[in-house]
Amino acid sequence: MKKLLISLVSLAALATFAGCGEQPQTITAKPGTSAAKPDDLPYGEGKLYADRNAWQLQLRARADTQNEYKRFN
């Protein structure tokens, strides 16, 4: 009984150890993936853009429209 209790207490203590250090504050999941469920990518099968490159090119072009020096000249 006593032994059981002591081992239980030390087990609980050990478990708490793990929580004490500073945790890396990044999620383990891949980028673009929620911790719980994956976020689908905006390109690929059945999407507007075939691949990442095409999508990025579009976004760049779109961002460039914010440059009125380019728009007017």
């Binding site: 990025q56 976004l59 760049r60 779109r62 961002a63 460039d64 914010q66 440059n67």
Partner: peptide, 12 residues
């Protein structure tokens, strides 16, 4: 207010 890729925004 500008939004987009940081490189493009920096250029603008």
């Amino acid at each position: 207010l500008l939004a987009g890729d940081g490189d493009v925004l920096s250029d603008i």
